[in-house]
Design a protein around this nucleic acid. Structure first.
Length: 480
DNA sequence: TGGTGGTTTGA
DNA sequence: CAAACCACC
């Protein structure tokens, strides 16, 4: 018997683990472990749990139609997985296990513990790197170190894919026989334990089929304009595929394949190339996560920045969470996040930079808050994005990026449409005042004044980072 | 995947 | 006098 162990790869298409299992000798079965304690300890958003569990139900049905039984097991946290897997293996006479690799430390330790347990029983495990396009340790600099600067990584990434990319097709040998989806009751019980309002779930459709449709729609309708439009949050211009990619209901290979096909149309080339760049960012942060375990310990990529002394003022943090900082674009973005479980990419940068630089809060607070609300909450991408914004991460530049929240607002929501939608208190303001409502205080009695001034932020941040660097160099015994 | 404050350019 | 351009942070 061959076992496909599903994790964040809840699909049938472009899935080497499933394909290989089908090509191996003997029948195939599948398993998923629900680890709610793991979700709890990482503050996984209820909406994301809902997405995952419903996608799991669809996967179970799809597998059953192809003669494969999906077992679903409540496992609490990762530490219980080896034993529970071992009993499943004994029960079904499993000889080989197939899975898609995951890279954060907890996941790798879980997999190592499982491998050790399975080794005792003579069961082989094979992992496949299908959650990325380029496997994490493939590309190295001339010195043999991981790439930590995106632009250099991207060049090699392009070349490697040019030479090596192939998309795994739908499994060919899947017979049209049927099996029973054994896990449905367990999934439904877990769904009963998820509390998420209909106002949120109404906005999303879980599952592999919806993800495939969304990809088709995006590529056909918006990909060509992606480069031009993607930074404007009032437009429907981005893919909205982040939830599907992070739960694995959609494969990055399908995305890459579709985008590359679209590039043969000259009008779509620019947009497609730009979007492929976003897939590269996704791989980039995953390979960073895989090769720098300290990120999984909650530490900064740049060690000296762990010496920064954040204010962590609770009132300011709360104002940020609730979208009442007095900076319209920041507030609109935060309200979008809480109301929809999603935030536009540019606004993730704007709000993250505002929390870390203007409010001088530990970026980990923001990272946690995002995880608690995002339907696409993905450890590597979220952590990478937060550290980039907080200037504690990769892609070092010799100065500190501090977005001006008013300038960003004027540039990317020039007409104030996005602000007007999410901050209706401001919807009557003209498209100049709406970015700086404090200039017309009488018109906006219900909207707060800026909770911190923009002036001086850059200087403070620069000084603090300089201080942290000096302190770190001293600790290291290096002359500064 | 910037911002700022300066200087130059050109209607 | 406002974009466009530039150096520096």
């Amino acid at each position: 018997m061959n076992l496909v162990w599903y994790r964040n790869d809840l699909r049938i298409h472009a899935h080497r683990a499933l394909q290989e299992a089908l090509q191996a000798e003997g029948p195939v079965t599948a398993v998923y472990f629900i680890c709610e304690d793991q979700w709890d300890s990482h503050g996984v958003a209820p909406l994301r749990r809902w997405y995952v569990l419903h996608s799991l139900n669809e996967l179970g049905e799809q597998l059953a139609q192809r003669g494969i039984t999906l077992h679903v097991v409540d496992a609490g946290d990762f530490s219980q997985v080896p034993q529970k897997l071992a009993s499943l293996v004994r029960e079904h006479g499993v000889e080989r296990i197939f899975c898609t690799r995951e890279y954060p430390l907890n996941e790798r330790r879980r997999d190592e513990a499982v491998a050790a347990e399975m080794d005792k029983q003579g069961v082989a495990i094979r992992g496949f790197d299908d959650s990325v396009l380029v496997p994490p340790t493939t590309l190295r600099t001339g010195k043999g170190t991981p790439y930590t600067v995106f632009s250099a990584y991207k060049k090699r990434w392009d070349v490697w894919l040019e030479q090596h990319f192939s998309i795994p097709g739908l499994p060919g040998s899947m017979a049209a026989k049927s099996a029973k989806f054994a896990g449905k009751a367990v999934v439904d019980k877990a769904l009963d334990r998820v509390s998420v309002p209909a106002s949120l779930t109404d906005l999303w459709t879980p599952g592999e089929q919806a993800a495939a449709q969304q990809l088709e729609y995006f590529v056909g309708r918006h990909l060509g304009q992606y480069r031009k439009h993607r930074d404007f949050p009032s437009l429907t211009a981005t893919s909205s595929l982040s939830a599907a990619l992070s739960a694995g209901t959609l494969s990055p290979a399908s995305c890459f394949h579709a985008a590359r096909q679209a590039m043969s149309d000259a009008g779509a080339r620019d947009g497609a190339a730009c979007w492929i760049g976003e897939l590269a960012w996704r791989d980039f942060y995953r390979q960073i996560m895989a090769q720098y375990p300290r990120l999984s310990w909650g530490r900064a990529f740049r060690p000296e920045t762990d010496l920064l002394e954040w204010d962590n003022d609770d009132d300011l943090f709360q104002a940020w969470c609730e979208g009442r900082t007095g900076y319209p674009l920041v507030d609109a973005a935060m309200r979008q996040l809480v109301a929809t479980g999603w935030m536009h990419n540019r606004l993730r940068m704007v709000t993250a930079m505002f929390l870390s630089k203007h409010l001088w809060q530990d970026w980990r607070r923001g990272e946690d808050f995002f995880m608690q609300h995002l339907i696409d909450g993905d450890f590597a991408a979220n952590n990478g994005g937060w550290q980039w914004s907080a200037s504690t991460g990769t892609d070092a530049v010799p100065y500190f990026r501090v977005f001006n929240p008013v300038r960003q607002s004027q540039r990317f929501d020039a007409e104030g449409k996005f602000i007007a939608y999410w901050v209706p208190e401001l919807k009557a303001l003209d498209n100049k005042t709406i970015h700086e409502p404090w200039k017309q205080p009488l018109l906006v009695p219900d909207y707060p004044a800026p909770i911190v001034p923009h002036a001086g932020v850059r200087e403070r941040v620069t000084e603090s980072f300089k201080g942290a660097k000096q302190a770190y160099d001293q600790l290291q015994g290096v002359d500064a």
